[in-house]
Design a protein around this nucleic acid. Structure first.
Lengths: 193, 193
DNA sequence: TGACGTCGAAACGCAACCGTTGCGTCGTCG
DNA sequence: CGACGACGCAACGGTTGCGTTTCGACGTCA
């Protein structure tokens, strides 16, 4: 039987190696070395670098972000953005996510895995928050949850990716207010012609 | 003297190779092969993979995005977002930008180059558009151009990176309206306690 | 106690790439 | 026309990683 602690050591090594050198440069030799394990142990569990990374990453990604329900849209949104900004600033995540995104542009299997890991859950959270807010009358009927998710996460991600500096409270607050205002405005097209 | 057409062939090969395999896997041998050139020719121009890529990429990045001035903030913004979305969907750019972003998380020199290439010009455009709008009274005094830029670009980038599908006109319109609304709302903090 | 299966370590042949060097060719300038 | 320099090509020794195989050492269960 495969020893569980060894599997755990490998998983851990993969995540760290992925963060340090990226998928492109990740080698099974380095993973084994880092885990203090023989290559044999790795190949006994997975047959590929791709298969290994996908299995491990999607395993980690399944830990969901909590679903906020504070009773007020503004607070739900602020809370979610706070959690997301923390997650995006996590030492490992902040390296792995952009890396896998880049790799996803070349490798359909990575794209699919990443898409599942990120989009599926995001969509659920977005639809819930927006749905509740619409039911409460805080947001107009027909508000697009997809737009909402992109508005919530996109600026945070872009800012972090480009500036590489921590997001301060003030920024987060301004951004949350802006997004709230954006969604409270009419969801329809431009002013009628 | 170094022959210009060969330099151009190498530059071109680097961009394409970068798009196909990424910085991590880019090899000088492959670049030379692709350019139909000896390795010698490459090493005569640059001494490093890093040096080579930085020089070439920052050269390309200097082609600026035009500065819109249509007389209306909503139109300026819509136009800018249209241009940015087109740029982000460009075959080469859509591969290289995420890749270099991921690499920037590991390599300070790449981070600096990318930061200069992206942020500097964005900031200028943002400040101009917002400044004009404030002067016209379309946006409140004290609107933060940094927030504006992140709101304009972030959602587009995130959406494209995660879904990998083209951005349609409807999405762009909705998003532009949302961002306009976001910025027209009070720039100050949350409702006074 | 004995059989079984995983373990780490080491080595295998193979391939790719590193950065450098030497060679003979070709184009250009003076 | 002659010299110079950039060119391509090929080969250098060295490194790294692949995926596989063999080995002896443990640990576990019966």
């Amino acid at each position: 039987m495969l020893r569980g602690d060894i599997t755990a050591a490998i998983r851990n090594a993969v995540m760290n190696e992925l963060a340090e050198v990226g998928y492109g440069r990740l080698s099974i030799e380095a993973v084994a070395r880092r885990a203090g394990v023989g290559k044999t142990a790795v190949y006994r569990r997975w047959s590929n670098k791709l298969e290994m990374v996908l299995e491990i990453v999607s395993g980690v990604a399944e830990r969901s972000v909590p679903m906020p329900d504070t009773g007020s849209f503004a607070t739900d949104l602020q809370l979610t953005m706070f959690i997301v900004s923390k997650a995006l600033q996590h030492r490992i995540a902040s390296q792995i996510i952009p890396d896998l995104m880049a790799e996803a542009a070349r490798n359909p299997k990575i794209a699919e895995t990443l898409h599942r890991a990120l989009r599926t859950h995001q969509t659920a959270v977005g639809e819930t928050i927006v749905g509740q807010a619409v039911a409460r009358g805080e947001l107009p009927e027909g508000t697009d949850p997809g737009i909402a998710v992109d508005l919530m996460i996109g600026p945070l991600y872009w800012h972090l990716a480009v500036t590489r500096t921590p997001i301060d409270e003030d920024y987060l607050e301004k951004m949350a207010n802006a997004v709230t205002a954006a969604l409270k405005a009419a969801p329809a097209g431009p002013p009628a012609p």
